[in-house]
Amino acid sequence: MARKGRGLPPEVNAGSMADIAFLLLIFFLVTTTIGVDQGINRLLPRWEENPPVPPINDRNILTVLVNKDNQLLVEEKLVELKDLRQTAIDFLENNGKGTCAYCNGKKDPNSSDSPEDAVISLNNDGQTSYETYIAVQNELVGAYNFLRDKECKKRYGITFTELEYIYNDPASKATEGLVEDLKPKVEKIQELYPMRLSEAEPKK
């Protein structure tokens, strides 16, 4: 008892520190996931009991029907999924009225008047698989993105996809004036090619 407290205190052995750190490291490696989720962003329409039916001319609507066997019917013609995007692009920038200066469409009188008037109407069966639904969504969003990117690149030298991501990122608020600067650009492109993609309730 008398020897206690005399001399230097003994050193703490740090040899097992590495083991402890490894243990923690492995724990974090196992319980966490790397990589960011990606997906198709959509804005759902507001819920209304009896949605008003706006008067839209028949030639301004591109009807896309998907049946329970995941087959596509576009404007009453059977279409392969791989051709859907081009069909949608042709429809959107058709420019039948001739008022759209930035369109390269064919000006077919039986297709859409201008991008502002064009509506894509998507109708699913209740038994359609989600995979097909996403593939169709992907192609239609792809058609819009193609046209918007092209126009945005021409005007602002950046693709619309990037522009919109920066605009919507909550972190952009930190940079003074950035959101205010991007807002008119984003809205301009959205005005030139408004995404009018209407979805009917799937039939049971």
């Binding site: 997906g39 593939a135 992907n138 792809g142 990122d169 909550p170 972190a171």
Partner: peptide, 14 residues
Amino acid sequence: PKANQTAKLHKKQY
């Protein structure tokens, strides 16, 4: 399902 016209999701808190 697969898609390629995607955007990144923002921070997890949102």
